[in-house]
Design a protein around this nucleic acid. Structure first.
Length: 878
RNA sequence: GCCCGGGUGGCGAAAUGGUAAACGCGGGCGACUUAAAAUCGCCUGGCUUCGGCCGUGCAGGUUCGAAUCCUGCUCCGGGCACCA
């Protein structure tokens, strides 16, 4: 039989399933290894080639670790609540549950077709009532601990989506999903007190084996800063003080004015009567300006004086109080002391409005720019002469002893806005009493399931969730028969993914979310692989919940994910041109442009010729035509040359590769190997339709190592008995060492290249020996499991190779009697010499100096110095 | 603006102080074939007066020796962005 991936892959996938080959059970006698993928949201588009990249990497590690004797937990599931299903429901009336089930079905089929070694008996679905029950159970715990609370907060309301979004889900004033505009308004919402864990979320990063940039992004996101709170009394308003936060208490003597954010609560109270109109106008305007507009002209400072003054507590100076939107209401206290000498923003503001600038730290020239570095304090009374750090401490001491302020820590991280005005999510397990108090739904009543609904539209105008309309669900009675209201909000999609890695440990448990026994054995996750887009959101939220579980005694590790790897994106090759059909009318008179005839401007692409506005267009991958030189051209217009662009795959760009097609044509093993071969896992790389051919050829060559005859009449040929020649044994040993090292370091691309070298050279001078044949099959198995299992069977083994021990290398075979040394003169290669492997420096030198080319280059000069690098080279300096 | 990551053949890439370009794609030549495909073998950085010379974004530096370490610049990708 010729190599027929479809036949083999179906056969072995069936075998693994029927024999439960990858079922994982707790076994205290063996070391465990938990390897996890970020589980997918099952979208309607199905899998794209990007998904299997990370899944293949974890699968190779899972299979490799099994062969190394580990008890491997490798599960898969579905993060299935989410906006797309709900939006599809709004459009078509199809219930999200129906869409979700269909999509899961398709995802499962596709993922299974790649032959991953998941323990499917542990499959979970976050929308399953048996799962939702425990998500709600966890919410109860959060509520009981005071970590969940309701608050009237300014939220990001997205009219288009009809819901609020977390700060993290808003990018440049637009929703991360769909790019719809977002406005700020105050609403009552569920919040989770993640800020209480801010310090631990920073500190515990230190011991994690994560990419440094991801750790840094998390630290920056939490944004811890140390400083002081200082209270400034307002003149003429007995008892009113403005509290500010500063990281530079050492510059207090340089504070020459103060600024309140427009939203600050004291603005109205302190504004002088003759400034009322102006201040009110400014505040109103700031409220109307979206976050985006405020940021876009960040350079230009605006503001207005309140006419009020405050007293600087250190020197008694009276300083003016302004209102300006460069001070953010949500950070610190929403008010600042302005030190224009030593803060660039204050400096710019002071320049524009003619406020005094004073130097209180030496080191710069405050006439020209703010000096934000450290230095000796000056013009600061009792701080004079102290270095910045000492001055800070001294000032905090003074503030505390005078009761004017105190040292403190502030974070950029806000509490987590945890409710959404959506249908397709977990309902909150709470009821609201008529007196406004909140009670938890008793544990025995969980899960609280979603009521049925026909119309999924958000009721946009009142900022209400769709569930508000289900009166007979919302209105209910509690155990004592009192009328109570359920909460119409649902949890955000993050809720399910905050703890799914724990549910995998014990997915059928209906007594507890997971058992202590399972948690003790399996946790933490040893390897977690997923996209870098989850660097802050998912990973921060999941770490937060995990720490709460730790405090509750539900888990025994501080951190859930010991090692994290971000896989790079697989990019697509697309073919672009431009036209002037801006309104997409498809009219006949459209003019098309080659990429070289356009120019990018801030407003978008324009024609170089006449500057008219253009729109980018793409030709679908399969429809591109080629001219005689092989250059891509428009299928209907041979004159129109297309531009090859490597970019993220998307439907609109026509560059999406469907894994089903790839598997049909070349098989799952080829797909797996190709994705691992195109480059380092962490790096983005373009999909190449030609490239997979090379991998397919390699697998065919591997197959033919064990077969004779032509395509029609190929029969298995058993390897010859024994260990083979010395060269064969050496090559086999080198391959074991190389592949093992590469797999340990997750360098799959170089591991594959070593197997290619083996398959090319092993039969060069002698037929394939059994020893090498078996070793090769086992080394290839984690990467191309279907092909390897079939060969293993042909070699006469009855059982799967999934639990065969990993080959051991006999390193003594690598020791050679003679080696080749490179001979360099002044660092340049001039020849080679054969020497005994334990050659002395003297002997090597003597021999090197007989090489004709070396003598010629030296041209009679005496060697000044000789460097011998054992086993590699000898360098003669002369 | 600030902070990361990166720049090596026509392309994906190897090599992290010691022979630059392993492995693969693409291209060329040859074998097999009536022919083609498939397969197998060899060649494939540039220049060359055939001795060599040049070559890892650019300019310097450290070193016997630098893609690798250091300084400055440049371009590309990502993150953050008035956080006091």
């Amino acid at each position: 039989m010729a190599y027929d991936p479809t036949r083999l892959e179906e056969k072995w996938q069936r075998y693994w399933e029927q024999n439960a080959t990858f079922r994982a059970e707790i076994d205290p006698a063996r070391p465990k290894y938990y390897v996890l993928d970020m589980f997918p949201y099952p979208s309607g588009d199905g899998l794209h080639v990007g998904h299997p990249e990370g899944y293949t990497a974890t699968d190779i590690i899972a299979r490799y670790k099994r062969m190394r004797g580990f008890n491997v937990l490798h599960p898969m599931g579905w993060d299935a609540f989410g906006l797309p299903a709900e939006q599809y429901a709004i459009k078509t009336g199809t219930h999200p549950r129906v869409t979700t089930e269909r999509n899961i079905e398709n995802f499962r089929r596709q993922i299974k077709s790649l032959g991953f070694s998941y323990d499917w008996s542990r499959e979970i679905d976050t929308t399953d009532a048996r799962y939702v029950r425990w998500t709600q159970w966890i919410f109860r715990k959060l509520f009981e601990r005071g970590l969940a609370y309701e608050a009237e907060v300014p939220v990001n309301w997205c009219p288009e989506l009809g819901t609020v979004l977390a700060n993290e889900e808003v990018i440049d004033g637009k929703s991360e999903v769909g790019g719809h505009p977002v406005v700020r308004l105050p609403l009552k919402q569920w919040m989770l007190r993640i800020t209480q864990y801010a310090d631990r979320l920073i500190e515990d990063l230190d011991d994690l084996d994560w990419p440094e940039p991801i750790k840094k992004m998390q630290r920056d996101w939490i944004g811890r800063s140390e400083g002081a709170h200082v209270r400034f009394p307002v003149l003429g308003h007995e008892g009113i003080e403005i509290e500010v936060f500063t990281t530079r208490p050492d510059t207090l003597f340089g504070a020459t004015y103060m600024v309140l954010a427009p939203e600050h609560g004291l603005v109205e109270a302190i504004t002088a009567s003759d400034q009322q109109t102006e201040v009110k106008a400014y505040v109103d305007r700031a409220a109307r300006r979206s976050e985006r507009a405020r940021m876009s002209n960040s350079g230009e400072k605006t503001g207005v004086a309140t006419g009020a003054f405050a007293r600087n507590p250190t020197n008694g100076e009276e300083i003016p109080i302004w209102v300006a939107d460069y001070v953010l209401a949500g950070y610190g206290t929403g008010a600042i002391m302005a030190v224009p000498g030593h803060d660039q923003r204050d400096w710019e503001f002071a320049q524009k409005f003619g406020l005094p600038i004073r130097e209180v730290v030496e080191g710069g020239n405050v006439e020209e720019a703010a000096w934000t570095g450290s230095g000796c304090a000056t013009a600061s009374d009792f701080l004079d002469g102290l270095e910045t750090d000492a001055a800070k401490s001294k000032m905090i001491e003074w503030l505390e002893s005078e009761n004017r302020g105190a040292g403190t820590v502030t974070y950029k991280l806000r509490d987590w806005l945890f409710s959404r005005q959506r249908y397709w999510g977990e309902p909150f397990p709470v009821v609201h009493h008529e007196d406004g108090s909140i009670a938890l739904v008793p544990e025995s009543d969980l899960p609280l399931v979603l009521p049925e609904l026909d119309d999924f539209k958000p009721s946009g105008e009142n900022f209400e969730a769709p569930l508000t309309r289900v009166k007979d669900w919302i209105e209910t009675t509690d155990a004592e028969g009192r009328r109570v209201l359920r909460d119409p909000n649902t949890m955000p999609q993050w809720a399910g993914s905050c703890w799914y890695f724990l549910r995998f440990l014990d997915p059928m448990n209906d007594e507890m979310p997971w058992s202590t026994e399972a948690e003790n054995y399996w946790m933490p996750v040893d390897l977690y692989v997923g996209g870098a887009e989850h660097a802050v959101l998912h990973l921060l939220y999941a770490r937060f919940w995990h720490k709460v579980f730790f405090d509750l005694g539900l888990v025994h590790t501080r951190e859930p994910f010991q090692k994290l790897v971000n896989q790079g994106m697989i990019l697509g090759e697309s073919f672009r041109y431009y036209d002037d059909d801006l309104a997409d009318e498809g009219k006949d008179s459209v003019t098309r442009y080659r990429s070289k005839d356009i120019r990018e401007t801030d407003e978008g692409p324009v024609a170089k010729e006449d500057g008219r506005a253009l729109k980018a267009r793409w030709i679908q991958l399969g429809e591109v035509a080629y001219d005689d030189e092989g250059a891509p051209i428009h299928p209907q217009d041979a004159e129109l040359e297309l531009e090859r662009v490597v970019e993220k795959m998307s439907k609109s760009k026509g560059n999406v590769i469907n894994p089903d097609d790839v598997i049909r044509k070349h098989g799952a093993d080829s797909m797996r190997l190709y994705e691992m071969f195109i480059g380092p896992l962490e790096k983005a790389a373009p999909w190449s339709t030609d490239g997979i051919q090379g991998i397919y050829r390699f697998l065919q060559r591997a197959w033919r190592l064990f077969h004779v005859g032509d395509d029609e009449q190929e029969t298995f040929q058993a390897p010859v008995a024994g260990l083979g020649t010395d060269d064969q044994r050496r090559l086999t040993t080198q391959t074991i060492l190389g592949v093992t090292e590469d797999l340990e370091a997750m360098r799959f691309n170089t591991a594959i290249s070593k197997l290619m070298v083996f398959s090319r050279d092993i039969t060069k001078d002698a037929p394939l020996p059994r020893e090498s044949a078996e070793i090769f099959t086992l080394l290839l198995a984690p990467m191309a499991p279907h092909l390897s299992e079939e060969i293993w069977l042909l070699l006469g083994h009855e059982d799967t190779l999934a639990h065969e021990p990993w080959p051991k290398a006999d390193e003594s075979l690598l020791v050679e009697e003679t080696i080749t040394l490179i001979v360099q003169v002044n660092g340049k290669k001039r020849g080679e010499i054969e020497v005994p492997s334990d050659v002395s420096k003297k002997d090597a030198e003597q021999k090197a100096l007989t090489v004709e080319n070396v003598l010629k280059t030296l041209d009679g000069r005496q060697p000044k110095k000789i460097i011998l690098v054992a086993g590699r080279l000898i360098n003669i300096v002369g």
